[in-house]
């Protein structure tokens, strides 16, 4: 890829001018054959708000975009490999691995696309990490993973990678509706001393630069995201936490009810986009 020849400094200075004006028109095809839907008609609940939903991929530089187009270049895939080992490793008092109950990781294709999701038996909306920890503690007799930390986020990346290309399709109605509404309220709440909401940056200003950052719609179809900035996989709640902190606000914690609600709502704003994680972002 010829863009890789550009030095980092040139890319840094060229970026704000070269790409100002919104999402680009590139197409995301991974490994030459996996087509990713990165622009889609907005789901109905966004009527009058957004016409089109757009993956954060379109707001990154060509160099960063290229890293996601080939699994050998995508640093996030290293962690997916680690998760495959974890998937096959028996743990806990029951001596079971994920594979013992679920088969191959590929058998989980489609799962990531519908989370967070209402769990009837538990009477709660669960994120993928909550569901994984339920398996660990109740079926394996193993310890719960820490929210958004290494093992958990690697496994989310594996679950995401086997669903890549499938449309995000998170349910907003029925028993999930109440938490969804709570997430929506949070999305539009102007927090902190800067009094900014998610919508102020990601709905009103996507496509604009805020200092050196090209604002995207803040979609989470690409999560976990490998960020060049911290050279690791980042979870949705950790990303939310960073954004809330940047409004000079007291943040919520990864795994908190507020962030579960917000994840449900933000995920539903991306209904119709492809599952894309692990993505690469700056």
């Amino acid at each position: 890829m010829k863009f890789k020849a550009l030095t980092a400094a040139v890319a840094l200075f060229a970026a704000p001018m070269a790409f100002a004006g919104g999402a680009d028109d590139d197409n995301l095809v991974i490994n030459g054959d996996l087509e990713i839907t990165t622009k889609a008609a907005a789901p109905q609940h966004l009527d009058g708000v957004l016409d089109e939903v757009i993956s954060g991929w379109h707001f990154r530089s060509d160099e960063t975009q290229a890293l996601e187009m080939d699994d050998f270049d995508n640093p996030g895939m290293i962690f997916v490999d680690q998760a495959v080992d974890q998937w096959n490793t028996a743990e806990g008092s029951e001596g079971k691995s994920c594979a013992d109950c679920h088969g191959a990781p590929e058998d989980m294709a489609g799962v990531k696309a519908v989370y967070p999701k209402w769990n009837e038996a538990a009477g709660e909306v669960r994120t993928l990490q909550m569901q994984m920890n339920d398996c660990r503690t109740n079926r394996m007799g193993a310890d719960a993973w820490k929210y958004d930390a290494g093992d958990a986020i690697n496994m989310v990346a594996l679950m995401s990678s086997v669903s890549r290309g499938m449309p995000v399709n998170v349910a907003t109605d029925g028993p999930a509706a109440e938490l969804w509404q709570k997430g929506k309220d949070l999305y539009y709440t102007r927090t902190g001393q800067l009094e900014l909401s998610c919508a102020n940056c990601h709905e009103d200003n996507y496509g604009n630069y805020i200092r050196a950052d090209h604002l995207s719609q803040g979609q989470i179809n690409g999560f976990p995201a490998y960020r060049l900035k911290n050279a690791k996989l980042n979870g949705v709640h950790s990303r939310f936490k960073g954004c809330v902190r940047d409004t000079r606000a007291e943040t919520y914690s990864p795994g908190s009810e507020e962030f579960i609600a917000l994840e449900l709502y933000v995920a539903s704003r991306g209904n119709g986009l492809s599952v894309e994680g692990p993505s690469v972002r700056n």
């Binding site: 709440t189 102007r190 927090t191 902190g192 001393q193 800067l194 009094e195 900014l196 936490k241 809330v244 902190r245 940047d246 409004t247 000079r248 606000a249 007291e250 943040t251």
Partner: peptide, 18 residues
Amino acid sequence: PAFYKTKGFIRPGDGYTG
């Protein structure tokens, strides 16, 4: 943002510490 305002915020934080 308001640059000379000290109260009336939702979830105010201590600068950028979170």
